[in-house]
């Protein structure tokens, strides 16, 4: 519904990326519903959640998309993260592989979306500190190197979750406002269009030529 007058309103799309079992779903459920034990959550659509924020009079609607983390679905990444404003890259501090996976996501995102997308890296499961396998210094150094912000979170203990999303939102806000300042007429429409995959008639592959009675 139209809300005009004071304070701009923004719609931000945030994707959660990371290997399976690092706690992506728990993070978002904790943030939006303030729930942890997913077994007791009934009829909650955890893959897509909305959160409204109001930061100093600016209204922001976060659309948080959880994505499939299994390796076999890796190729589907672009379908999910296209035209997103921010990404939360989650790894499990007890699992070194999941951190490597974050690195590969960062590379891919930077390559496909450039600097348009704001990144935060979340080292989740700090409640399992004693089993830590990813060093904090290494992770923070890496985050700085790639222009992301690093957070330590625990969905279970509700630590760092809200702060992480808040900082990410502020960063996305800055990015968008900078852009708007650059080219006054709203450029969002264009950025949206850019990612639309157009299946054109001309691109339709010709029907595979099959010869009669030859082995296919």
């Amino acid at each position: 519904m139209a809300n005009n007058t004071s304070g701009a309103s923004h719609n931000f799309k945030v994707v959660l990326l990371g290997e399976g079992c690092v706690g992506k779903t728990s993070l978002v459920l904790r943030y939006v519903e303030d729930k942890f034990n997913t077994n007791h959550v009934t009829t909650v659509q955890a893959s897509f959640l909305n959160k409204k924020l109001n930061i100093d009079g600016k209204r922001i609607n976060l659309a948080i998309w959880d994505t499939a983390g299994q390796e076999k679905f890796h190729a589907l990444g672009p379908i999910y993260y296209r035209s997103s404003n921010g990404a939360v890259l989650v790894y499990d501090i007890t699992d070194e592989d999941s951190f490597q996976k974050v690195k590969s996501w960062v590379k891919e995102l930077r390559k496909m979306l450039g600097a348009d997308i704001c990144l935060v890296i979340a080292g989740n499961k700090t409640d399992l500190e004693k089993n830590r396998n990813v060093s904090l210094e290494e992770a923070e150094a890496y985050a700085i190197k790639v222009g992301a912000i690093h957070f330590q979170t625990s969905a279970k203990l509700n630590k760092g979750v809200e702060e992480m999303f808040l900082v990410l939102t502020q960063k996305m806000l800055e990015t968008v406002e900078e852009k708007e300042a650059q080219n006054a007429p709203l450029s969002r429409q264009n950025s949206q269009r850019r990612n639309v995959v157009v299946v054109d008639d001309d691109q339709v592959p010709p029907p595979p030529t099959r010869q009669c009675c030859s082995n296919s």
């Binding site: 997913t38 955890a46 893959s47 499939a68």
Partner: peptide, 17 residues
């Protein structure tokens, strides 16, 4: 359809897919 899938069960995005 999604609503039916989510009935009484919390699904991860992997499951949904």
């Amino acid at each position: 359809t999604f609503g039916h899938l989510y009935t009484k069960i919390c699904l991860t995005s992997d499951d949904v897919l």
